[in-house]
Design a protein around this nucleic acid. Structure first.
Lengths: 187, 187
DNA sequence: GTCTATATAACGATAGAC
DNA sequence: GTCTATCGTTATATAGAC
């Protein structure tokens, strides 16, 4: 099984990634120039290029940080028995999504990032594993639509205007209850 | 109440919009150059600028086409009684989303379009009306999370990899059943 | 309505000094 | 590790002929 990078980035690289992700979320990857990232970090473009050879590498590194967390969650869940695994993944994925409310949408929907997710094999495998846990291995149309809805609803709901005033704890508990209900209720 | 444009665009403008929207959906607005739009239409950039003064005007016109359909749906629904209104909106919004599978995601998530939705008053009002019908006027946290999930789930599920092989009719019926269930089930 | 040609600005990326 | 300066390319947008 292919795994994501586990050795940590340098402090300089980590600062760049931390500055870039919120910009990607607000303006999109294509709407975020290296000048904007450099300004946010407080250095010049050349200093950024000393840490990353291309803009794509910054995008890749930023996505990798969040997907590494997802990988940890999946590993923990896959060690559990069937019904418990799904509940564990749901709980932790919701925690992740709520905690990073502003960022999830970019990772899930930005065209540049979507391309990365589709082309780079370790990312693809990670998504496959997530879907496998969500569907519980079932392949029927009903089950797949439920899983697709849950997957979209979590990422989309956390930054929805309708829930902007909810604190993290309230959002977390409502989301968990409703996603479980959506997955389990008999149709 | 502010309304969207009702007079039709010229044939030339309509062709440009039809060519632009799929490009916006695949590459994002910022990832779609006027050269790409011109190539898709089969003319030069200058010909495009003869129809629209700026790129923003093309984006605006493209979004307006889809939101005008949403407005029609909302008008029909608002003329109905309470419980029926929500079911009607859900049915028609799902039809719209499934029918334009590839396009919805851009309209819902592209940063440039999101800015338009937030800044231009008639668009904002339209979204408010949609949310009002989905929540049925209730303002509790549970109701708002449900509505946010439904709103995100419909747009996100229609182009989810898990349901790529489902035909429109199957996707439609599953989505309708499950969204109604998500909104109505007692928690 | 469409073309060729071009102005102007910003982009990603590199060279070389400190 | 950060800077100034710059290269080559592409972006939005315009001018003016047909």
């Amino acid at each position: 099984m292919s795994r994501l990078r586990s050795d940590p980035r340098s402090a300089a690289q980590t600062r760049i990634i931390a500055a870039a992700l919120p910009l990607f979320a607000e303006h999109g990857v294509n709407g975020t120039s290296l000048q904007m990232i450099a300004d946010a970090v407080g250095v010049t473009k050349a200093a950024i290029y000393h840490q990353f050879r291309t803009k794509d590498e910054i995008v890749f590194a930023a996505v990798e940080v969040d997907l590494a967390k997802l990988e940890s969650v999946l590993e923990a869940a896959e060690a559990e028995k069937r019904p418990r695994a799904r509940e564990l993944v749901l709980t932790e994925v919701i925690n992740l999504a709520v905690e990073r409310r502003r960022m999830v949408s970019a990772v899930q929907h930005d065209p540049v990032i979507v391309r990365f997710l589709a082309k780079y094999e370790p990312f693809r495998q990670l998504m496959e594993r997530l879907y496998a846990v969500l569907t519980g291995g079932e392949t029927g149309a009903d089950t797949r639509v439920r899983a697709a809805m849950v997957s979209a609803a979590i990422g989309g709901a956390v930054m929805h205007p309708l829930v902007r005033d909810l604190d993290d704890e309230a959002l977390r508990s409502h989301l968990l209850k409703l996603t479980l209900q959506l997955l389990d209720a008999s149709g």
